[in-house]
Design a binder for these strands. Structure first.
Lengths: 332, 332
DNA sequence: CAAGATTTTGGAATCGATTCCAAACACTCC
DNA sequence: GGAGTGTTTGGAATCGATTCCAAAATCTTG
């Protein structure tokens, strides 16, 4: 049995295709009796309107796509939940796909916007240059989330990474730290901003960075361990380490502890993101909480505006407030 | 400037729409000169074939969708990577969407298969009853991954959860444990199988379960802590705890350690999944490694078969070999 | 009950790409 | 040169749902 079409339904119900379509779309210009006959036929034939035909005629899909490097990141996952809930409220389906940092994979997925497979795109961690993002955003519906371009040509939502890093570094200094090191991620724009904030807080206090280490590849638990090993090999140890993520901070704490030092007594460690890792770590990590869910909702709002009001093109960046979460990994 | 169509390209290139389409689809029946003219026009107009029109005509989308409760799970994430890589090799785009355990959300997403928005579906953690999965699978392209139905009506790939739980429990017994407890997840089929395996290993050894605790809501770090608190409140403590996931095991270890006991000396703890949590935990966790990536590849293979060969309908379950990974959280 | 207003209906045109068919064209080889 | 073969092309039909328009049916109301 092949798939039923609107024609089949019309025949079975004894009405025209126009009427079937009107029932399908809840048009008020249908008599109760027709509505019932059509409903019956739909049930009988187990009919579903074919998406591609509907999309073609309507010129929209009611689907959006999010792209992220990986899906495991709790911040991305939570932000996407915000996107998804907001989208659902407006009748959109939201999907996500990992790019694994591959430009080719990313191109293929961005093409889904270009060829109308989806109506909008949420970019979490683009591998493409900012210029490309902006070019995309001028003609199509795109918003950036978490990891956003510096220029104001496109629209993006995030926290103020520089300020957040400054806040947490100030806190470290406030607890008495004087030789501060950082383990950062220069591969990500947010990572570079966090580095900047770190340095700003230091110079405010008239201090210099003890050490700055940056991951070459992934920015994960193992990288945190590896870089901390290098840190601990130095002649003069730092008394605090600011890490660009909780996971890396967990690796850092682990390595410090294994080397026989105590956190926070010998070295304080701060993380970033307030993911579950921050609580799993012993001692629990001082970190920065991002309002990821809310960021996702806001991002979808902007995307919706872009998708439905053709003239409007919101630009610029929107920063939502972060929060310093103080736990045992930093002295107080 | 509105979107360019195949008509526009034809006009600009000075050929017919047929020729444009043939160029687009790499048909050999096109002269080099036409091919060049069309390529030029496509570039000039920045043309992309509209997905909905193509999909309508071709009656397939070259897209598949995976559904999972949440995306953060490392096993799901890794298995989906396997699906995605295999899919890409066959020219398919793979997307994923979280259901958040909501049947409504799940229905909406499953409808994407029903209405032809995607060609196939990978179900990681269905909330719908097995019967519904089977009904779906009889007429449409669906495979189950990780969390699979007991019946053989549909096709699913996973490890043998029962056997794996039996293996790790035997290992615990082998290290000298006699009072074994478990913290499980009866909400998931795999969780129930793991419980079964646990009990089988016990009775093999002529032992009885000291305690069995099951999460009411989420099966996460906090649940692990909470349930372990209950465990430790008992008169007579167990000497080993088998946990249904690494994350829960990490919570378990944390609670035990906080209570002043030592792992594994006072209590041994075993996890499941061999996620990064297993390595982050102190002590590192003995656990079961799932070949998630490979499972994903195999699942896509079956799905592809189902999508492309209309007659074929593979059924049954396929178990890939798991591996017992012994670390410090269990004595040896 | 007729004229007019309103509701409901059928059916054709449409969206944009693909594909099939027949026609046009270009070769080859005697 | 012309019959025969093979290549390339244009254009119409098609996929299935939506929407517009005009016609039909129904309802008002004097």
């Amino acid at each position: 049995m092949a798939r039923a079409t609107v024609q089949d339904v019309a025949k079975t119900a004894g009405v025209s295709v126009g009427t079937v379509s009107r029932v399908l779309n809840g048009s008020p210009a249908v008599s109760a009796s027709s509505r019932e006959k059509v409903a019956g036929a739909i049930r009988e034939l187990n009919y579903r309107p074919l998406a591609s035909a509907r999309d073609l005629r309507r010129d929209r899909t009611m689907r959006i796509l999010a792209l992220a490097k990986n899906l495991e990141s709790p911040v991305i996952s939570e932000a996407f939940r915000g996107v998804g809930d907001a989208a659902a409220q407006s009748g959109y389906v939201s999907l996500i796909a990992p790019t694994a940092g591959s430009p080719d994979r990313e191109k293929q997925l961005v093409d889904m916007l270009r060829n109308g497979s989806v109506d909008g795109l949420v970019l979490f961690s683009p591998t493409m240059p900012d210029d490309d993002v902006e070019a995309l955003a001028t003609s199509l519906s795109v918003v950036q989330l978490c990891e956003i371009a510096e220029s104001e040509a496109a629209f993006g939502v995030s926290i103020d990474d520089r300020q957040a890093a400054r806040d947490i570094t100030r806190h470290l200094i406030g607890t008495g730290a004087r030789r501060l090191a950082m383990i950062g991620n220069r591969a990500a724009r947010s990572g570079r901003l966090r580095e900047q904030g770190f340095r700003e807080a230091l110079s405010e206090a008239g201090l210099e960075a003890a050490q700055s280490l940056f991951a070459a590849g992934d920015f994960d638990f193992h990288a945190g361990r590896q870089l901390t090993r290098e840190l601990l090999a130095a002649d003069h140890l730092p008394d605090a380490v600011f890490c660009g993520s909780d996971t890396v901070a967990a690796g850092c704490v682990r390595e410090i502890t294994d080397a026989g030092f105590r956190v926070p007594e010998d070295l304080a460690v701060a993380g970033f993101d307030d993911s579950i890792q921050a609580e799993m770590c012993v001692p629990e990590l001082t970190t920065i909480r991002q309002p990821a869910y809310e960021m996702g909702r806001v991002a979808f709002g902007a995307l919706l505006e872009r998708m439905t009001e053709p003239g409007v093109h919101r630009r610029g960046r929107m920063f939502l407030p972060h929060e310093l979460v103080i736990r045992e990994s930093t002295k107080n």
